[in-house]
Every structure is written in structure tokens, then in C-alpha cells.
Design a protein around this nucleic acid. Structure first.
Length: 491
RNA sequence: GGGCCCGUAGCUCAGCUGGUAGAGCAGCGGCCUUUUAAGCCGUUGGUCCCAGGUUCGAAUCCUGGCGGGCUCACCA
């Protein structure tokens, strides 16, 4: 850093502004690479960050990295002039420069720009963790890579500069969301925005973050879901609405959980969960096709085929299949015994829904590698879902599961206001017994339902998890630019 | 929250059963006008995460703390 400040000063003494205002570039690195035939011997202007530097007396080679790649620059004192060469000598890896010159190929065959002018665009004062690399059989081999996960997450900007594959993941994330948005818009659904600060949090079972509004002197919660607001919009007469929503849950963090995460929630009037399953498989497979060019993906070494139709298996049937027990209709005492026989530790406070969920999560979910819709959950686990048309102890709900992990949640939405009130009341009783994640009764939401909500199908898709799946990333932190971290130590 | 592992130069790491810190790359100085992990010669660089303890002596052993990773629990 000391050295770089000295160089900065020298440059300024030479009359160079180390932070000028703009640069007219004509091509990106990739455009030069891809149009070499046409551009050979033509003059182009590129800009970017110096990522390697090889000086050889009165000439030099260095690579400049821009948005979509790198290109080599060849600098000769005879071509660029004494002054520019003196400027060059004061540059470092990490500095941002603009170069104009003629396109050619070196003796070793690399497409290169012979610099005619060189302009400093930004002086970098902080050294980058330099990465040395070479191509072996067309493969990039990196020496001493920048791998420290803590530094990579805390200083994502450095990670992005130095590890190009990281950039790819986030570009795909953006494309996944665009493809999803396009898919939904094409069907006429309306993208909307609903409150993040909510006086009553609802729509999911989770603990919230709490904040305070000064002017109103009231408690507000960061939303854990937007479900109840979107359904209000269905009541209001919109017949298809969706939102890409940042949600916040005040819970543990691990490979699959970040305190703030992104969900796409969609509600469509006059449809049920069967219809929604068809839409879900079509949507996910279409996105894969558009973003990856294929519906066959590999996640952590496992081949997964996203092409519809996906298997649809009722929850109890999946448990029968994978755990070898039939617990459909079993009472709580039976469930408790069965779970213990299966080697699952059951806690005293758990109700039957929780026990079933546990058996499923332990013994079934991890085995569902290929896309599967698990359907028809116990009523008590799903206070916002409509009763199953054939079995009043179940609800019409499904979760799409891929690679052993749920990537969403959906149901035929409960629109009977009296039933909804009873379900809320049951939740409030759980809450009174100390279940902090039980849902809160929302009187205004009930009022909306009392005006009448048409039959509606709802879906939530975890964007972070979907991105993990489609980019083959093992941790949610690898698909979130700035994952939550403890504050940096300052000692 | 529990368990295991990690924290040494800008980066990647070595440093044994305690003897006062090293390599490669980067940086700096020099040579080099088609190199590419460029090369060659020379060279700077460290609160060894923090605080205590044991010891004549601690990067090393012990305790506590901080930060991170993995994992289990929790959690949709």
C-alpha cells in the first residue's frame, strides 16, 4: 500500500489524473476474441483491470480483465512512446486502464492488442490476492488460488475480481430470475410489491426480526413471507399476482439457510394445487432449458432430469415406500411409537404433524433425488392450506423436492374464512403453549377472506435453493453476494 | 446451542516431542522489445487472531475469548 501511494504521487507529479472521468471503449475483451478475423490489424479500445504483468525491459505484456473476460496487451516503448511507458512502469496489478491499439496474434498464438495509447483510469491502492494461472490442454489451472471463505464472503468484490467462476454463478442467478419473470409475465400474471415492514407477520411458521417505527411508536416485523398480502390482492380482484420477495427469518444459519433469502410467490385464481404442480414442473424445466440449455443437470455429482412430468407421491405413500411403515391415519401415540422404532428421537411437546414431518425429513426427503412432488400433508402442519377434497385430515398441499431438498411449497389456498379463523385459533393455542413459531392470527386478513376470495392456487419457490441447484453450488452462501456474517473483528 | 477442524508475510502454505519464524508467488531494485505460472540476479516484509497461564524460554503446551469452516440439533 505504501508503494502504491508513492506511485500515485509520482503519477500526479507527472500530470496524470489517476481518477479521470470516462473512457470511450469500442470493444469488450470477448468481442475482440470472438471477432479476431474481422478485427485483425484494426484499432480497438478496451478497458479493464490489469490482472497480470510481465515486463521485459522496454516492452511488456499484461492482461486486462473486463466484464466478460480478459485480453492480453502488448506494450512496446517504441509504439506507445516514452511518456506512456514511464506511466506504465508506475502501474500495478489491480489498476484499471484503457488501451487503444491494433489487434494481432503473438508468436504463441494469443490474440493480443499492440498498445498505441495507454491511459490510467483508476489507480488501485490495495494489492489484490494475485492468482497465477496457466492453460493446460485448454483447462485453466490456478496456482495459489484465493480460497479463504471468510475473506471471499466478506470481501466479495475481491472474490469476483479474482475468481471468474464466481461471477458466472451470479450471472446465472440473474438469468434464472429473468427467465422466471418472463415465464410468469407471458401467462399474464402481474408482478407486484407488498410490505416488507409488517405490523403482523404471517404466511409461514418462523420467528421474525423485530424493528420499531419511531413516528408511530410501534413495533414492526420484517416479513417472514408475503403470502397473506398477495392473497388480499386476489380478494381485490387480481387473478394472478407474483412477487420476488426478500423474506427474513430470525433463525439459525447453515448451508441451506440465510437469515434473509429470496422467494418467488405466485397466486392464481380459479386454480388448484394439481394445476399448480403442472405449472411448477413446466416453469422449472423451462428455466433450466433457457439458462443452462438443458433439462439434465448435475448437482453435487448426481444426475438429475428436470423434464416433466415429475413424480407425484402423497406424503404417507412416500413414507410407506422409503421408511417401510404405513402411518396414514395413525394417532399420536402410534406415531410416537413408530418413530422411535425407526430410531428417530421424538420430543414430548411434538404433535402428530411434527412427528410425521420428522419421519419424512429423516428417512424420505434425502432419498428424493429426482424431482418429486410430495403431496397431501396433515392438516395441523398447514394452517393456510385448504382441506383435502377427499380426506378432511389432510390438506391439498405439495412440495417440489429435488436433490433431497425442498425448493418450494404450494397449496390450494384456504378461502373459507370460518375455517381459516379456526386454524388461526389452533395456532394461537400452540403459541400459548410456547411454540414461538406458531402463526399469528391476522384479523384484517380474515376480514378480506370474509369478502370472498375465489378458489386460488399458491406457490412459493426458494430462489436461493433453486439457484444452488442449477449452478451446482453446495452452500447458500455461494449464491448470495453478501451472505450474513458476524461483524468483522476490530480489536 | 453441541461436536470436530482451522486462524503464521498481501495470497497459498510449512514450521516435529517448547529454544525466539520460513518457502513459493506478490512487492521493491537491476537486466531483458512476441512473453504467458516469463526468466535471471539482488532485496524488503510478521502484534505467529486476542487475553491470561505453565516455563529460564511459547507460533508450538494449557485455559478463556474472538472469527471462520464442516457437521449435528433447530429451522420449512
Amino acid at each position: 500500500m505504501q508503494q502504491r501511494r508513492k506511485k500515485l504521487k509520482k503519477l500526479q507529479e507527472m500530470g496524470i489524473n489517476p481518477y479521470p472521468y470516462k473512457f470511450e471503449r469500442t470493444h469488450t475483451s470477448r468481442q475482440v476474441q470472438e471477432n479476431f478475423e474481422a478485427l485483425q490489424n484494426q484499432t480497438v479500445a478496451v478497458a479493464g483491470r490489469i490482472m497480470s504483468n510481465r515486463r521485459m525491459g522496454k516492452a511488456a505484456f499484461f492482461h486486462v480483465q473486463d466484464m466478460d473476460g480478459r485480453i492480453q496487451i502488448y506494450l512496446k516503448r517504441d509504439t506507445v512512446g516514452d511518456f506512456a511507458f514511464e506511466v506504465y512502469k508506475l502501474l500495478d496489478i489491480g489498476d484499471i486502464v484503457g488501451v487503444a491499439g491494433r489487434v494481432f496474434k503473438t508468436r504463441t498464438g494469443e490474440i493480443t492488442i499492440l498498445a498505441e495509447t495507454l491511459e490510467l483510469l483508476t489507480k488501485s491502492l490495495r494489492p489484490l490476492p494475485i492468482v497465477k494461472e496457466k492453460l493446460v490442454n485448454g483447462r485453466r489451472v490456478v496456482y495459489d488460488p484465493f480460497t479463504d471463505k471468510e475473506l471471499r464472503y466478506r470481501q466479495r468484490y475481491v472474490d469476483l475480481i479474482v475468481n471468474p467462476e464466481v461471477k458466472e454463478v451470479f450471472i446465472k442467478r440473474s438469468r434464472i430470475m429473468s427467465a422466471m419473470r418472463e415465464f410468469l409475465n407471458k401467462r399474464g400474471y402481474l408482478e407486484v410489491e407488498t410490505p416488507i415492514l409488517q405490523p403482523i407477520y404471517g404466511g409461514a411458521s418462523a420467528r421474525p426480526f423485530i424493528t420499531h417505527h419511531n413516528a408511530l411508536d410501534m413495533k414492526l416485523y420484517l416479513r417472514i413471507a408475503n403470502e397473506l398480502y398477495l392473497k388480499r390482492l386476489i380478494v381485490g380482484g387480481f387473478e394472478g399476482v407474483y412477487e420476488f420477495a426478500k423474506d427474513f427469518r430470525n433463525e439459525g444459519m447453515d448451508r441451506f439457510h440465510n437469515p434473509e433469502f429470496t422467494q418467488m410467490e405466485l397466486y392464481v385464481a380459479y386454480q388448484d394445487y394439481h394445476w399448480m404442480m403442472a405449472l411448477t414442473e413446466e416453469m422449472i424445466s423451462t428455466i433450466a432449458q433457457e439458462v443452462l440449455g438443458t433439462m439434465k443437470i448435475t448437482y453435487q455429482g448426481r444426475e438429475i432430469d428436470l423434464a416433466p412430468p415429475w413424480r407425484r407421491v402423497p406424503l404417507f405413500e412416500s413414507i410407506r415406500e422409503h421408511a417401510g411403515v404405513d402411518i396414514a391415519g395413525a394417532d399420536e401415540a402410534t406415531l410416537r411409537r413408530v418413530a422411535e422404532d425407526l430410531g428417530i428421537a421424538v420430543e414430548d411437546g411434538w404433535g402428530s404433524g411434527k412427528i410425521i414431518d420428522e419421519i419424512f425429513g429423516e428417512l424420505v426427503e434425502p432419498k428424493l433425488i429426482q424431482p418429486t412432488f410430495i403431496t397431501d400433508y396433515p392438516l395441523e402442519m398447514s394452517p393456510l392450506a385448504k382441506k383435502h377434497r377427499e380426506n378432511p385430515r389432510l390438506v391439498e398441499r405439495f412440495e417440489p423436492i429435488i436433490a433431497g431438498k425442498e425448493i418450494g411449497n404450494a397449496f390450494s389456498e384456504l378461502n373459507d374464512p370460518l375455517d381459516q379463523r379456526r386454524r388461526f385459533e389452533a395456532q394461537m393455542q400452540l403459541r400459548a403453549r410456547g411454540d414461538e413459531e406458531a402463526q399469528v392470527l391476522d384479523e384484517d386478513f380474515l376480514r378480506a377472506l370474509e369478502y370472498g376470495m375465489p378458489p386460488t392456487a399458491g406457490l412459493g419457490i426458494g430462489i436461493d435453493r433453486l439457484t444452488m441447484l442449477l449452478t451446482d453450488q453446495p452452500s447458500i452462501r455461494d449464491v448470495i453476494f453478501f451472505p450474513h456474517m458476524r461483524p468483522e473483528k476490530t480489536h
